[in-house]
Design a binder for these strands. Sequence first.
DNA 1: GCATGAGCTTGACATAGGTCAAGGCCGGGA
DNA 2: TCCCGGCCTTGACCTATGTCAAGCTCATGC
Lengths: 226, 226
Amino acid sequence: MGHLHVPLLNKITLFEGLPAATLARIAEAAGVQRFSNHGFLFREGEEPDFVYSFLEGGIVLVSGAEGHEAVIEFYGPGESVLLPAAILGMPYLLSARASSDGQALLVPASKLRALMNEDAALAARCARVLSQNWRALITQIKEIKTHGATARLAHFLISQADRSKGPATLVLPGMKKEVAQRLGIKPETFSRTLKKLRAFGVECDGDAIRIASMERLTALVDTLPA
Amino acid sequence: MGHLHVPLLNKITLFEGLPAATLARIAEAAGVQRFSNHGFLFREGEEPDFVYSFLEGGIVLVSGAEGHEAVIEFYGPGESVLLPAAILGMPYLLSARASSDGQALLVPASKLRALMNEDAALAARCARVLSQNWRALITQIKEIKTHGATARLAHFLISQADRSKGPATLVLPGMKKEVAQRLGIKPETFSRTLKKLRAFGVECDGDAIRIASMERLTALVDTLPA
DNA sequence: GCATGAGCTTGACATAGGTCAAGGCCGGGA
DNA sequence: TCCCGGCCTTGACCTATGTCAAGCTCATGC
């Protein structure tokens, strides 16, 4: 846990807009950790020692036994994970596996909890970030409960695309297998569904996707039954 | 928005353990609203004017068009809903429909936001409650992605039961139709699955359920394939 | 350069769960 | 009291998605 430059903290959404004094106190206690692709940063059931925020690279949150796991969500640069476990001091519900090489900023959970109780700005910031996380999960649950595989995949592609009109591109945030499980379907179904979308202007080369027309894809979603 | 007794606030988990001064300021701005069964307290897309906390009775959070809706979760006395929308000042992602007559405590969203920025105890409390909400949703997503209808129903019954050993009872927190959708299945499937569980000591009379042996039901879950 | 294996695709087939349609049951209103 | 309309159950049938089993392709290490 070295001496850290405050500017690093500015890359993290969680710490956005906090007063300099607060940032300084966080920086004091924080450290940086490198991680490499496919490695686990932490596992389900462990006690939360840190909040992880990503400076570079990303991870995928998974749960369950290897080979039979559910993928919850992908996280990348600027984002933080497992704030809830750290705040409550309860065991992680999920494991994090790196989906690329990268580095994370680690803030000790105990330090964060202590600061939150004194510093309204920090606590309020945490509440806002948690609120956004909550909304993201709600969106995912609605999606799973109301749409079939095709619509889910289409929505996902739309949400990841770099533009919202005309042609767009994106690169999948993890292995196809992982994206499939994020969507709640099997890799085989993912593959077949993606193929179906070719008829609607979705081309795929490795983990890069090209969407010929966002409008066309959006229109497709409305057409779909479930 | 009348003059309110602070003791009412003590019934709400969200406000647990807050200093008297904070409670007084919240009470000042809060009001009570009665609602009756099947009525909507608010609808998806509306601007968040209040945080709702339930003193009596409960609601079900739903989304989507009537007749084609997804049920997200049930909430009852002591619990609060839509803190995230209120904190962020963004439109509700969900609608709330009463699942019984009751009354709710309403705290203006603007007031809550203002207080949070000054009062670390309140902000930290919000963060903790949001953290718990987050974990509940994660549990639900894991459940949907990794278990079939039978296991999901069994888990749900276990989570609602009044005891964790031996025989137990529970009453469903809403119409069977709603519980089904909460579990991500259709009412017909719910009915059939519940019937299957009869072979494992689950009896059902209206919305009251009797579980002959929690151990037996727990054991069943492990047996199940998906 | 070749063998190896992970990740992906494809096909044939199986099945959980959805859909459609008919009652049964029960409670509220005339 | 009877009728009507929700809600739930049941049965027959259908389909989206999962399962199993080859292949294919590409990167890696020998």
